[in-house]
Design a binder for these strands. Sequence first.
DNA 1: GTGAGTAGCTTGCATACTGCAAGTGACAAT
DNA 2: ATTGTCACTTGCAGTATGCAAGCTACTCAC
Lengths: 114, 114
Amino acid sequence: MTFKRSCCPITNALDILGDRWTLLVIRDLVLGKRRYQEFISSPENIASNILADRLKQLETSGLVAKRAYQQSPIRYEYVLTKKGKGLEPVLETLVVWGQKHFPGTMVFPRVKRR
Amino acid sequence: MTFKRSCCPITNALDILGDRWTLLVIRDLVLGKRRYQEFISSPENIASNILADRLKQLETSGLVAKRAYQQSPIRYEYVLTKKGKGLEPVLETLVVWGQKHFPGTMVFPRVKRR
DNA sequence: GTGAGTAGCTTGCATACTGCAAGTGACAAT
DNA sequence: ATTGTCACTTGCAGTATGCAAGCTACTCAC
C-alpha cells in the first residue's frame, strides 16, 4: 500500500477528517440527523456548498451512505456506515477534552426518530 | 461565555485542531519531539512556514509552551502543556480507528531522551 | 393553473489559507 | 574567511472557504 503523506494512521485519518467541518457533520449523523436541512440548521451555520462538498467526500471515503427516502420528487438522506460509526469513540474523547478545557460547552441531545 | 461558532465542545476543539497539520505536530510532541528540525523531519514533510504558524497558534491556545534550551544563539524548544497532554486519548482513539480502516498504517516509536 | 413552499443542491465571486522555494540572522566550527 | 546549523521569515501562486443567490423538481392551497 502506498500512502498520500505517510503510513501514520493519524495522518491518514486527518486526510479525511482534518478540517473545521467534516467532524461536525459526523457529529450530527451520530446525533441522529440524516437530512440536508437538518445539517444546515445546526448552530454552526455551515454553508450549503461546503455541506454538499463534505457529504460527497464522506461518501467517497466510505464513512457515509446516501440513499433515497422517497421518490417523486426524489429526496436523499445520509447515514453513517460501520466505518463512520467507528469514529464515535474519537468524538467522545474529543467531547471529554473539549468540556474540560472550554467551560460552558455542552453536548447536544440526540435527535429522536420514529 | 460567548463562543465563536457554537457552544459544542467538538466545535471549539476543531477551531484549534481542525486542519491537516495541527494534530500531527501534537503527535510529534507526544512522541517526544521538541525541536523545529525534529518536526520538519517528520515523514509528512510539513512546510516550515506552516510549522511556524501552527506552533504559534498552539502556543496562544495554551496547548504548547515554548522555552529556550540555550542562549547565544538563543534556541527554542516546544513542550506540551497539561491541556496539550490531555489530547493523548484523542490521538489514541484516532490511531485505533486509523489502523483498523487504513491497512498498512503503523505508529511511530517514541523518541528517546536523556 | 398560478403562486407559494420545500428539499437538495449548484454557481459566482471575493477573501483567506496552504504550501513550495528561497532567504535571513546569529552564531559555531574549521 | 568559509561552511554549516538552527529557527525561523518572506514571496507568491494555487487552493479552499464562505456568503449570497439561483436552480430543479416536485407538492399543496386557492
